[in-house]
Each structure stands twice: as C-alpha cells, then as structure tokens.
Simulated scan of single mutants.
Amino acid sequence: MEIMASNDELENRLDSSLYGTPQLKPDEQRHYLGTFRERVALTLDFKEVKNSDYLEILKKELESHPEYHLLINGNVPSGSFSALIKISRQTNTNFETVANNTTNSESELAAVVASKDTALNLSNVDVAHKN
C-alpha cells in the first residue's frame, strides 16, 4: 500500500528541513531574551542594569516570587553581569545567559525576570515603573 502526502504536508516538511521548525512570535522572543511577553514580570535595559536602586527592585521581585527565573543578555558588561549573578545566588533563583546577536544599545533588554511556563499578563514590566 502506497501512502501519499498532500502537497501542503510535503511543502511543510521541506520548509522545516530547510528553515527549521517555525517559531511562534520570534521577534517577541528575541526581545524578551527567549520568552514570551505574557510571561515577563520585570525588565531592565542596559542603562537600568547599572543602577543599584533598580537592582534592589529586581532582588525584591525575585525574593517575592521564587518560581521566577532570571534571563541575562550575554552582552551585559562583566560588572553588571556579576551583580545579576550575585542577586540570583542571594535569592536562590535560577538564571540563564542568553546569547543575543544584536548590539547592546540602551533600547535592548539586559535582564528579564519571567515565569517559566505561566502567563502573567502584567501591563507594566519596566523596572523604572515599579515601586
């Protein structure tokens, strides 16, 4: 018995072979260091990650939510990277360094606090707007 795939199935298989598995919202995932916006609790850009007051807010967020994890942009300067790792250890939070192929402009995110698999749907996640 011969099984024939439809043209759409064949085309999908060829596309997956050539381009890889399609991603859902790839630009959003790139911006939020590999996660979806709906899972994000807090973000810091490259300028904010150098501010000790903002790092304290980050620490309090991680202490309040032990189920969250920390995503760190691989382009973060070593001093800020060390501070983020220290906070991660102090709060017993898992962290992940994310390779980001773009330059570290101030408009990019340096660190993201997110839920691993639960949608939070918070309206404001920028550290500058947190109390």
Results as ranks from 00 to 15, higher is better:
A5I: 02
N131L: 15
H65P: 08
E63F: 06
Y68R: 13
N12W: 04
Y68K: 11
Y54Q: 09
H65A: 15
L33R: 07
L10N: 07
L10A: 13
I3D: 02
P66Q: 06
E96K: 15
L18V: 12
L109R: 07
A110D: 07
N12T: 04
E28M: 07
D126Y: 01
H69F: 14
V125L: 10
T102K: 14
E2R: 14
V127P: 05
G79I: 13
G34L: 08
R13Y: 04
N73G: 10
N73K: 09
S52L: 12
L10M: 09
E48T: 05
Y19H: 12
F81V: 07
S105V: 03
R30I: 09
I72R: 11
N124L: 07
I72H: 08
L71V: 05
L55K: 11
E56T: 10
S82I: 11
N7I: 11
E63R: 12
N75Y: 07
E38M: 12
D45R: 04
L58F: 06
E48P: 06
Y32M: 12
D126K: 10
E67G: 10
E108C: 14
T102Q: 10
V40A: 14
T43L: 13
D8M: 02
F46I: 08
S123I: 04
H65G: 13
G34F: 11
T35E: 11
T91L: 02
D117R: 04
V113G: 07
S82T: 08
M1C: 10
P66L: 04
Y19G: 06
D126W: 01
L55M: 14
L10E: 09
L10G: 12
L109A: 03
P77T: 08
A83H: 04
I3S: 03
A119E: 04
G20Y: 05
N75C: 06
M4T: 08
A83F: 06
I3Q: 03
K50L: 10
A41D: 14
K59M: 04
L84M: 01
Y32L: 10
L71C: 12
N75T: 08
N92C: 05
N124E: 12
K25L: 15
T93L: 01
Q90F: 01
L71E: 09
T43C: 15
N101W: 09
T91F: 00
T91M: 01
L62Y: 03
N131P: 15
S82V: 09
E67D: 07
K47Y: 13
F81N: 14
V112E: 00
L10V: 08
A128Y: 01
N101C: 13
N94L: 14
G79P: 11
D15N: 15
N131S: 13
K50P: 05
I72V: 09
E67M: 15
L18N: 06
M4P: 05
I72Y: 05
T43H: 13
K116I: 02
M4C: 07
R13W: 02
I3M: 00
S6L: 00
S52T: 14
A119T: 02
Y32K: 11
E38H: 07
N92T: 03
T93F: 01
S78Q: 10
T35C: 05
F36Y: 08
Q90P: 02
T102E: 08
S88P: 00
H31V: 15
N12C: 13
I3N: 03
F95H: 11
L84Y: 01
L120V: 00
L122E: 04
N124M: 08
N94W: 04
S16T: 11
T97S: 06
S107P: 05
S64L: 15
D15I: 14
T102G: 13
S82M: 12
K50D: 15
